[in-house]
Design a protein around this nucleic acid. Structure first.
Length: 1038
RNA sequence: GGGCGAUUAGCUCAGUUGGCUAGAGCGCUUGCCUUACAAGCAAGAUGUCGGGGGUUCGAGUCCCUCAUCGCCCACCA
């Protein structure tokens, strides 16, 4: 590409540059990382995005931070590996595809069958993986694409099987019956994390269960209440508190304590509860005591409709202060009842089929749906006179996050990972600092969650995922099981690649649904194991369940590097360097990666975890497609450019807060930005208030609305970053336009001017700050520092000041070299955040000033992506030069302000004097020649004894006073007004300081340095005041 | 109910270990198409730092408390 300076456009055309630059980087193989023992590794694994859909702005933030660190470390000379990939996201993806099939083709997964459905999901995965990887590329993520992984690909699948086998062999995996959250639509168990609750209007049914053979003084009925009356078909007991008196006493104490602590407004409510409690004591307590005694005597209740005899039991779950004090117990369909069932060794009767209809255990209600069964049960009980009453009531309905259908608690066979030891290992890793979490406050949630050490249910009744590598067979007798076990173990294929375990028979009274009591579970390390065929021929059947998607994600840092093989990659890049993720998956993902890494590899998966903020909309709500407030990163890239998106993301990443991003629609007709409100974000079409034309939104469903052009969802917040990119572009453009005749040569240090030394000092400081910032995850600080430096210091001062020298033939060569060098440094500093625009400029600069450098010009690295990160000699940092320059900047501002306030025509040059001490004068003198070009002022005199022009405008600073000669120009009114205001302000400041100094305690206790500072302050302010008074007096005479 | 975080200019946010007259960007006002940039330049206005207590010579910053908002976790027939 041969570009001459004059051809450079005044806008960076990212649209055409992006593909070209990506090709440049790809062709050079710069994203690819190979182990190199000579160099230090740096590795980040991407949190694999779900293949459920396209990336959103949260991903853009996440991935930008990762790539920024990758690029930074690559420039620092490390072998930087950014490992890309996607997650199969089990239930989420299957749910999306199933929903799509239902909508578009009206088929269910049962119509298709397992194989075909899985094939369809693979199609979906291919499509979205491509889309996601494309998005990452357009974000500029310098991922090693050759290593792209998928949590369900062969490599990950092998790691999953080996891990499962290992845990199984260590007896850390077991099968058990557990109550799970059943999604009747997807027909799978979903984890607690995938359940949301919604408050809905429901009913509260009060039922009467007859007591069998009531004796004198005993109640004929027990009264129980439920929000789900159909579950009574699975009742196996009614519970009452073992000691209702004590329980009521305890409750009363608690109420009284609360009464004392509560504010007055809440007291009446508590007091009325206390009154109710007393009523309860007289009316209900005797009856509860009787029932508790009956329970101890082994008495029973008749379960209506099914005519089953069920025991009356005592359990503290039944609270005497609530309802009737009695609770129906349905162990197979309620989590709390399940606990009671375990404690009281109750039978557990499952009344549900997996599709949500009732099974044979429900008697005549078999095959009814839950909804129908509820109506029927209620009607039948009512007819029998056993329905006491019905209340309306708000109830919390658990819903499956994926299918939005109500969750049914359901007893099913599930596989579990024992967490006790594994969790402890992960707790220890953070406690002893092998894993460091930033910000530190997130370590608490991590540790608390792990400390519960709750076993991890890992099986999912899905078709999309890693099928559990276990083959099982049931046996009537232990002997039969043992015989088969012996036979299999004798088989030649039975080697270390297989493990068979005998499942202990369940306790007699626990389960009522299976005849077989003994199970052999054969776990295979490798699916292809010859033993699979053997055991299948013996009647073993493979588990149809798949593993929780987090099981494979937990292995991500080592499975992607080739584990279980001892690959060079694993050896070199593991443990990875930094994990960057969002806080909502610290437990689900981060904790599990730590414990699996420790178990499988024996080392933590990463040393640093950085938790970044979340992006919220202007109302503080999380962005999501379902709300319509989500921003598509590609829309932002189209409108503002990839560098602006990235810079904005880094700029937003502060340590303390989540980030609010007010969202706008962009009218596709006239580009007007329309603020998104909670109302208009739900509309299918919106009329632009400016051009009055309509556009469609993501909610457009009618053909008419869909035909309208779609309005982008964007945020004006990206404008800052876009403007910054433009500024950088034009500064570079200017520099390159003035490079004509450039010759490389070492900088002549003798000829460095004050501003050169100032720039070097600032550059050295800024480079050090940026380095430290990126090392310490101070993303926003780094972005701010670079922004300020580039715009204010480099563009507004240095480049402006350099213009004179560039126009002067004698000074031009060194000025060009300095300019090229400074730009070179800035490009390198900004590259990790803004890769495209900086690389584009680098390429252009290469053809104009290929050799550059400060001490010795060298050929610039062919590409910026692998250029060395700037390291400037700290000796360049010079506080004296910087203070000298600050003085100059203050003088410039003062001069400019006077011009503005006096409304002096821009081209009109004025003359001025500066009154100051000799020391200040000596500092300002060398910069005096810049006043005409930068502020249209000619410095006539400077020093302690200058003659003050009359009439003049005055500006009193701490270190100097400026008087601008305004002969024939002055606006007396404006000047007086402004000085009066200044006068009042200074008086205020003086008073503040004097009252401080008048305080003996302050003078006595504050450090001498602080006291002195206050004294100096007063003196300086008084001098300023004096100047103003003199000026005012003079002006008022006119 | 338990935990975490937030509350600073109209909006979005900075503000290091307490210490000069609390900052930035956007928006607003004024003047400029100054040969890199109007996506720009120069200047200006804008604050009871959520309320109330306390510690201190001194509090946006530390402590207590209240209020509001957000997030995570655990939850009642």
């Amino acid at each position: 590409m041969s570009t001459t300076s004059t051809e450079i456009s005044n806008r960076f055309d990212y649209e055409s540059a992006q593909p070209r630059l990506l090709e440049l980087w790809n062709a050079g193989g710069y994203f690819h990382a190979e182990p190199d023992p000579q160099r230090e590794p740096f590795c980040i694994v991407i949190p694999p995005p779900n293949v459920t859909g396209a990336l959103h702005l949260g991903h853009a933030l996440n991935n930008t931070l990762q790539d920024t660190l990758i690029r930074f470390n690559r420039m620092c000379g490390k072998v930087a590996l950014y490992m890309p990939g996607t997650d199969h996201a089990g239930i989420a993806t299957q749910a999306v595809v199933e929903r799509r099939l239902k909508e578009k083709e009206n088929v269910t997964r049962h119509d298709l069958g397992r194989e075909k459905l899985v094939a369809r999901i693979w199609q979906w995965k291919d499509e979205y993986e491509k889309r996601i990887l494309g998005q990452l590329a357009r974000l500029g993520c310098s991922c090693d694409w050759q290593r792209t992984r998928f949590t369900l690909d062969d490599m990950c699948a092998r790691a999953v099987r080996v891990t499962f086998f290992d845990l199984f062999s260590k007896r850390l995996i077991y099968r058990g019956k557990r109550l799970v959250n059943w999604d009747t639509f997807l027909q799978t168990a979903v984890s607690d994390d995938e359940v949301t609750t919604e408050t809905v209007q429901g009913n509260f049914w009060h039922l009467r269960y007859p007591v069998i053979n009531p004796q004198a003084g005993e109640p004929e009925f027990v009264l129980v209440a439920t929000t789900r009356p159909e579950t009574m078909l699975g009742d196996t007991a009614v519970a009452v508190h073992p000691d209702p008196t004590a329980a009521l006493d305890a409750h009363e104490r608690e109420l009284r304590e609360r009464l004392e602590k509560s504010p007055a407004a809440e007291r009446p409510a508590i007091e009325s509860q206390l009154v109710a409690l007393q009523e309860r004591r007289s009316e209900l307590l005797p009856r509860l005591i009787t029932l508790a005694n009956m329970a101890r005597a082994g008495r029973s209740i008749r379960l209506p409709l099914l005519d089953r005899e069920i025991p009356l039991v005592t359990d503290t779950w039944a609270k005497p202060e609530l309802g009737s004090g009695c609770v129906k117990i349905t162990p197979a369909h309620d989590p709390n009842d399940y606990e009671v069932g375990m404690r009281c060794k109750l039978p557990m009767i499952n009344i549900l089929n997996s599709d949500g209809t009732l099974n044979a255990a429900a008697g005549k209600y078999q095959n009814l749906t839950l909804k129908k069964a509820r109506q029927q049960v209620v009607a039948d009980l009512d007819e029998l006179g056993l329905l006491d009453r019905v209340e309306d009531r708000e109830i919390e309905l658990p819903l499956s996050d994926r299918s939005k259908t109500p969750i049914e608690p359901f007893l099913a066979d599930q596989w579990f990972v024992k967490m006790a030891e594994l969790a402890q290992s992960a707790i220890d890793a953070v406690a002893d600092g092998r894993v460091n979490i930033t910000p530190a406050r997130y370590a608490k949630g991590y540790t608390d969650w792990l400390s519960e050490k709750r076993d991890w249910p890992v099986s999912r009744q899905l078709w999309w995922g890693h099928q559990i590598p276990v083959w099982s067979k049931s046996f009537e007798t232990l002997a039969a099981a043992q015989a088969t076990l012996d036979a299999v173990q004798k088989h030649s294929a039975y080697t270390q690649g297989a493990q068979i375990q005998l499942e202990q028979p369940p306790t007699d009274d626990a389960i009522a649904d299976g005849a077989s009591q003994f199970f052999l579970h054969c776990c295979l390390r490798d699916e292809q194991h010859a033993l699979a065929a053997v055991i299948e021929s013996q009647g073993f059947v493979r588990e149809s369940d798949v593993l929780d998607t987090w099981f494979s994600s937990a292995l991500w840092p080592h499975s992607t590097l080739g584990w279980p093989d001892k690959t060079a990659e694993l050896d070199y890049f593991y443990p990875t360097s930094t994990l960057i993720t969002s806080r909502d998956i610290i437990t689900l993902w981060v904790a599990r990666m730590v414990l699996m890494g420790l178990n499988n590899v024996g080392e933590v998966p990463f040393h640093q975890v950085y938790i970044h903020p979340k992006i919220l909309d202007g109302f503080g709500e999380t962005m999501s497609k379902s709300k319509g407030n989500g921003i598509d990163p590609l829309d932002v890239i189209d409108k503002f450019g990839p560098d602006a998106l990235r810079f904005a993301m880094v700029h937003l990443t502060t340590e303390t807060q989540d980030v609010r991003l007010p969202v706008q629609y962009e009218c596709p007709h006239c580009q007007t930005a329309i603020d998104q409100t909670k109302k208009n974000r739900e509309l299918p079409r919106i009329e632009c208030p400016s051009c009055k034309k309509s556009f469609g939104t993501q909610w457009a469903t009618t053909a008419e609305d869909q035909a309208l052009p779609r309005g982008l969802v964007i945020s004006e917040r990206f404008e800052v970053a876009r403007n910054f990119a433009n500024k950088l572009w034009n500064a570079a453009r200017f520099a390159m336009m003035r490079m004509e005749g450039y010759t490389p040569q070492a900088i002549d240090v003798q000829k460095l001017t004050v501003e050169d030394r100032w720039l070097m000092s600032r550059l050295a400081t800024v480079a050090a700050q940026a380095t430290a910032g990126l090392q310490n995850f101070a993303f926003a600080d780094t972005a701010r520092t670079l922004y300020e430096f580039t715009w204010q210091e480099f563009c507004s001062f240095y480049v402006e000041m350099l213009k004179d020298r560039l126009n002067d033939e004698a000074q031009r060569p060194q000025a060009q070299r300095l300019l090229a060098w400074a730009l070179d440094c800035i490009l390198r500093l900004l590259h990790p955040i803004m890769p495209f625009i900086t690389e584009e400029i680098w390429q252009l600069l290469k053809s104009i000033a290929p050799m550059r450098g400060f001490d010795k010009p060298v050929a610039a690295n062919p590409v910026l992506i692998t250029a060395a990160w700037p390291k400037l000699d700290p000796a360049w940092c010079d506080p004296l030069i910087e203070s000298q320059f600050s003085l100059f900047q203050a003088a410039l501002s003062a001069l400019r302000e006077i011009r503005a306030r006096q409304n002096i025509a821009p081209r009109k040059e004025v003359e001025f004097v500066i009154r100051c001490n000799a020391e200040i004068a000596a500092k300002l003198q060398p910069l005096a020649s810049y006043f005409p070009s930068l502020a249209g002022g000619q410095l006539r005199e400077i020093g302690p004894n200058v003659s003050i022009p009359q009439p003049s405008a005055t500006f009193a600073e701490r270190d100097f006073e400026i008087f601008v000669d305004l002969t024939g120009l002055i606006d007396f009114g404006a000047e007086i007004k402004r000085l009066e205001k200044e006068h009042a302000k200074i008086i205020g400041a003086i008073q503040g300081k004097q009252s401080k100094l008048g305080n003996e305690k302050f003078v006595a206790s504050a450090p001498a340095e602080i006291v002195q500072r206050e004294r100096d302050g007063v003196r300086q302010l008084e001098e300023q005041l004096q100047t103003i008074i003199v000026a005012l007096t003079a002006l008022r005479k006119n």
